[in-house]
Design a binder for these strands. Sequence first.
DNA 1: TATTGTTATACTCTATAACTATA
DNA 2: TATAGTTATAGAGTATAACAATA
Lengths: 138, 138
Amino acid sequence: MTDPRLDIATQVDRFVRRLNAAVHARAEAVDAERVGPLGGMALLTLAEIEPAPIGRLTAEMGRDKSQMTRLVGLLEAKGMLARTPSPDDGRVSLLSLTARGQAQVAAFRNAVAAAVDEILAPLGAGERDALAATLRKL
Amino acid sequence: MTDPRLDIATQVDRFVRRLNAAVHARAEAVDAERVGPLGGMALLTLAEIEPAPIGRLTAEMGRDKSQMTRLVGLLEAKGMLARTPSPDDGRVSLLSLTARGQAQVAAFRNAVAAAVDEILAPLGAGERDALAATLRKL
DNA sequence: TATTGTTATACTCTATAACTATA
DNA sequence: TATAGTTATAGAGTATAACAATA
């Protein structure tokens, strides 16, 4: 590659591919409910911000709102999260994890952390911290 | 986020989302042939390694081979690349870009580079180089 | 017997627009 | 009139397995 910017783009793309593959490999044991990688990500994100309206979750994940409507419906049907009407705004429901959802989050956390460790194995501790710090700025 | 590894996973995920969105926004002008982001990535990759068999391209992109069969068929139908039978192995064809494909590559290169610039804007030059170097190790 | 590549199938994710109900 | 969320639909990307041809 001549242009370092293209290099970054392709490397990051492959990073995500490997991450998904590694999580997927572990997920056979973990994802008995088959919420999928996107569902896992949504639960992971919701764990950080709950209780939150669906719009907040959408923004946090950088996805599309119609996509989120369906995903949240799926996760609700599987008993991973619950909606409670917002007292402030009649259009809004607040999402929060159920006990099932929390268990799933814990399992996903382990799978993702292990997958990241695997991929970042070639890096030293200092480089990992630097990478995390750099990404946080974006 | 408590665990820095989860942090890295979500940040990288969002990076790719933003990258795709930014390229997509520019691609309306560029991607008249509608090869899609994956097709663009394939052409970009092929430009670096041509002439190469489909298996090499598959490995380089970290994708699935059956997926590549279809994608290459599409790109061939659009006149972006050509196959020539390998003299060494009767099972293999070597892929190479056509003039059309090369033009498309040039356009995509610009779109991707601009998108990366946009996303990496918060970083200093030193940090960008460090990021590129770190990713190359993975 | 192993490898390259193809076909088939089912599923997951993404993009867009039109729509409803509340604010 | 603006915003939160939903519905509908089409298309793009992914995962798996079974298969044919060649090595």
